[in-house]
């Protein structure tokens, strides 16, 4: 994979990273203050977030400009591709932690509290939680948060699954379009993808509303509520990010930034979108169906 290194673009000064560090610093510090009810926390968080947004616009704007100016050769392109790939892999591992928590609670701690397992499981159930029967979904032996109903898979989640799967297809059609150099078609199908993503997020919000308003299913509803909202919540956040990326790509497509050969930004966003898609399938199966 190694190519001649001469001509590899090495920028000489980078102003945005330090801006990003300051932004993140304020964001994290402010959020910490906010969580502890310290005055000004919310403001500092927002200022930090705003700086980060400015940084992202500035930095990516610069990269887009350089890319349009033909500064990058194919080797630089390869660096970008690899980075995006491994970044997505790191995101996969982030989700793995939460899936791990779900599996662990369902196959180890839940049954143990219900009295199944070697060692002290029987005693745990008899002495500490007498009368507790483990069944998934579970809000634990203390039934934190009170009676609730689990989120079924039929209805909104199923519709959302179909939406996301369709969006994967529309995204691929857009990709084929740009490979054929057809900007118009690409933009059209990307618009469809973004729209599907947006509807997905909207429905997800509706589902949360349902959960809180009618099912009494909350973040505080024991381990089921915790895993349900954290997994779907982080996923929803990633869908939002992915949709924004695709929207940006769409606008760049309108400006004819891409060519049949050179459209890394498109591919990066598309990969990300497929990643979000696959995570959803995992969610649909393990959080809703099983």
């Amino acid at each position: 994979m190694s190519a001649a290194t001469s001509g590899y673009y090495i920028p000489h000064e980078a102003k945005w990273p330090i801006v990003g560090s300051i932004g993140l610093f304020l964001f994290f510090y402010g959020f910490g203050m906010f969580l502890n009810d310290q005055t000004g926390g919310g403001t500092v968080t927002l200022i930090g977030a705003a700086i980060v947004v400015v940084m992202i616009f500035g930095w990516f704007g610069l990269v887009i400009k350089e890319s349009e100016a033909g500064t990058y050769n194919s080797q630089v392109d390869t660096s970008f591709r690899m980075s995006m790939m491994w970044f997505i892999f790191s995101e996969v591992m982030f989700f793995a932690a939460f899936f791990g928590a779900l599996f662990y609670a369902r196959t180890f701690s839940g049954p143990w509290l219900g009295g199944d397992g070697a060692g002290g499981a029987a005693a745990t159930n008899a002495v500490l939680w007498s009368g507790h029967d483990y069944v998934w979904p579970s809000d634990g032996p203390a039934q934190l948060g009170g009676d609730y109903q689990a989120m079924g898979w039929f209805g909104l989640p199923l519709i959302n699954t179909l939406l996301l799967l369709t969006s994967g297809v529309t995204c691929t059609i857009a990709h084929h379009a740009i490979k054929d150099g057809n900007h118009k078609k690409m933009v059209r199908w990307l618009a469809a993808t973004v729209a599907l993503g947006t509807i997905f997020v909207g429905l997800q919000a509706l589902e949360y509303y349902e959960a809180y308003a009618h099912l009494n299913l909350k973040l505080t509803s024991g381990i089921y509520g915790s895993t349900f909202f954290m997994l779907t919540g982080f996923h929803g956040f990633h869908v939002t990010m992915g949709a924004i990326m695709l929207a940006v790509v769409m606008f760049r497509g309108m400006k004819k930034h891409f060519s049949a050969e050179n459209h890394f930004a498109f591919e990066a966003a598309a990969w990300y979108w497929h990643f979000v898609d696959v995570v959803w399938l995992g969610l649909f199966i393990f959080v809703y169906l099983l």
Binding site: S109, L113, G120, T124, V127, L128
Partner: peptide, 8 residues
């Protein structure tokens, strides 16, 4: 000794 669990 784990809160909420019993080990033997």
């Amino acid at each position: 000794a784990i809160p909420g669990f019993i080990n033997e």
